[in-house]
Every structure is written in structure tokens, then in C-alpha cells.
């Protein structure tokens, strides 16, 4: 006769990609709904993961629900592949899903990122998962989630526009830094997650699928490929990305990519391109050329969203 203890499942061993299959199924259904209604926040029952809440559990759940053994996974934290948190997440995904990992944005099939979109243009076969601390773009004007949901339902965004108006009155410019609110396909206003304004245009009519997921707040939403994404801007006050004119990356000598400012002892600052995967490829390019054709294609630096003069690849999007 077997005992209950024997019948019960063992404490050891985890499901493929950590989450149990019921959890994955729920997440996949929510993701499909999010893709069907661009920019709409779909609530989901966020599971606890073995990393702290607020450290990318929302993105990680989506990644774990999507990842397969053939995927190539890249994890970014503030642009960097090698920051401790990105390394930790990458290690976890690889361990639980047996997926290959990379730092090369064009080689990855699944990119989980905290607060950056790579400089190289993503393609149709790629999925970008953005970690979201606060999915609610109306939070600053309406902290009650139930009321905010009603405002979304009625496309009632007057208060958000009013806050832009007031910023212009008080400061003569829009004082929103990262998390710049965007209108998705002429219907829902969404928070693009705290990506810099530099990255916001990259979501517009993009070839790749973007999924945004907030684990703590239990909401996920999507920007499907080839969807309009417009930052909120007045007709006569165009949206502006960060002004980094004249900043040059000390490692690559390039300009017009999003830069980190590195303060120097004794005053002043030097700059480096924030996208470390991109820097890696640029620096490797020269020896690759010398190797004369023996290099794999993936080492080539792909087309970027902004060219070396800082022009965005879609003409007329940034005025």
C-alpha cells in the first residue's frame, strides 16, 4: 500500500522553463489577447519566480512562456548584457529552458530587455520582451486602477494631455524623461516601459513583435509588428529624443547612438554607447574583415534605427 507521501510529487525537479504548464497556458492566452488588442493592458495572474519581484519577473514570465529549446536568448539590462541582473536572468533562462544565449541582437530570436531597445533594427522573426515596472500611463493623473481602466475604455486621455500642457506652461518643454506615453494604433495610450525617448520611435511600424509585461502589477500588453506607435505630442511642439549631440563614444568613436555618461574624477564626463552588444560587434568588425570571409554572417553589424548622423530610419517620423 502506498502512502500519501509517496503519491505526492517529489520536491525535486522543475518543469521545462520553470513554470508549470497551466501557468504557461494562461500566459500564452493573455499574450494572444494582448496582440489582438494593441496597447491594451491584459491582466494576468502573475506567478512568483525565484528572482525578486520588480527585477524583471513580468518579462521573465513572458519569456519562459515563449522560450523553446531552439531559441537564442539575449538579455539586456539598461543596454548592457553583462550587468549582474541581465547575467542572472540569462543564466536562469538558459538553465531552465536549455536555450542558447547570445549578446548579438541580430542573432537572438527572443530578447528580454530592461529599459532599452537595441540599436540594430530588429527583424520579423524576433520578439522583444520589455520589463515594465509600471504599466499604467495614467498613474500620474489617476492612481486608482479601476478608474484608469474606465478612462482607457473610453479613450478619455484629456487629463494626460493636460499634464503635457501644464509642463509646457511651467517649464516650456515636456518634462517627461523615460516612459514617455504613446498612443498605440490610434486607440490605447500605453507606457513603453522606462525606455529612453530615444527608443520610443523604434516601436513604430516595427518588424518585430514587442511584448511588455509587468509582473508586480500583473499586466501585459503588446505592440504587434507594423503597428503605429506615436508619442503624445502637440502639433506645434514636436516630441524630442534626448539631446546627445556632440557626444562621442570613447570606445568606438561613434556618435548618434544612445550614450551613457560616465563622470570622471576631476570633473567632466566621457561617453560610451549604452548598447554593449552593439559595441562588441563594432569593435570586432575590424579583425573580422581581416579574416577575409571566414567570419560567420552574424558578426556583421546590421542596419541601425538611427544612422551615424542621427537620422531616424523612417523619414518624417521625428520632426
Amino acid at each position: 500500500m502506498s502512502t500519501v507521501a509517496e503519491l505526492a510529487s517529489s520536491n525535486r525537479g522543475y518543469s521545462y522553463a520553470f513554470l508549470d504548464e497551466f501557468a504557461k497556458r494562461e500566459l500564452r492566452r493573455r499574450i494572444l489577447k494582448a496582440i489582438a488588442i494593441p496597447g491594451y493592458q491584459v491582466p494576468y495572474a502573475s506567478r512568483e519566480l525565484p528572482i525578486a519581484r520588480g527585477w524583471g519577473t513580468g518579462g521573465l514570465q513572458v519569456t519562459l512562456a515563449l522560450v523553446g529549446p531552439d531559441d537564442v536568448v539575449k538579455v539586456i539590462d539598461q543596454g548592457a548584457d553583462d550587468s549582474v541582473n541581465a547575467a542572472n536572468l540569462r543564466r536562469f533562462i538558459a538553465r531552465m529552458a536549455g536555450a542558447d544565449t547570445t549578446t548579438d541582437a541580430s542573432r537572438a530570436t527572443l530578447i528580454q530587455s530592461r529599459h532599452r531597445i537595441p540599436e540594430e533594427r530588429l527583424q520579423e522573426h524576433q520578439t522583444l520582451v520589455l520589463q515594465v515596472p509600471d504599466p499604467e500611463p495614467l498613474r500620474s493623473v489617476e492612481h486608482d486602477i479601476s478608474k484608469a481602466r474606465l478612462m482607457h475604455a473610453e479613450a478619455d486621455y484629456g487629463l494626460l494631455w493636460l499634464s503635457l500642457y501644464e509642463q509646457l506652461v511651467r517649464y516650456r518643454r515636456v518634462t517627461l524623461g523615460a516612459s514617455y506615453p504613446c498612443l498605440v494604433h490610434h486607440r490605447y495610450v500605453m507606457s513603453p516601459s522606462p525606455i529612453p525617448r530615444w527608443d520610443v520611435p523604434k516601436l513604430h511600424q516595427s518588424a518585430h513583435l514587442t511584448l511588455l509585461s509587468a509582473g508586480r502589477e500583473k499586466r501585459l500588453y503588446a505592440v504587434p509588428p507594423y503597428t503605429d506607435v506615436r508619442p503624445l505630442e502637440f502639433a506645434d511642439v514636436p516630441f524630442r529624443v534626448e539631446d546627445q549631440r556632440g557626444w562621442m563614444c570613447y570606445r568606438t568613436g561613434l556618435q548618434n547612438k544612445f550614450m551613457n555618461e560616465l563622470p570622471q574624477t576631476g570633473g567632466g564626463a566621457i561617453y560610451e554607447i549604452s548598447d554593449t552588444g552593439f559595441v562588441e560587434k563594432v569593435l570586432r568588425k575590424v579583425p573580422d574583415r581581416e579574416a577575409a570571409g571566414s567570419t560567420p554572417a552574424q558578426a556583421a553589424v546590421g542596419a541601425t534605427y538611427y544612422d551615424d548622423e542621427g537620422r531616424f530610419y523612417i523619414d518624417g517620423y521625428l520632426r
Binding site: D156, L159, L162, Y165, L168, F234, A235, D236
Partner: peptide, 15 residues
């Protein structure tokens, strides 16, 4: 802004 909000709701988008 109280007045501007009304125009915003009505669709005006020029500051």
C-alpha cells in the same frame, strides 16, 4: 489649463 482641457477633450492638439 482648466480651459485648455476642454479643448483637448474636443480634439485640439496645437499648444
Amino acid at each position: 489649463g482648466n480651459i485648455a482641457e476642454r479643448l483637448i477633450v474636443a480634439g485640439e492638439r496645437a499648444y
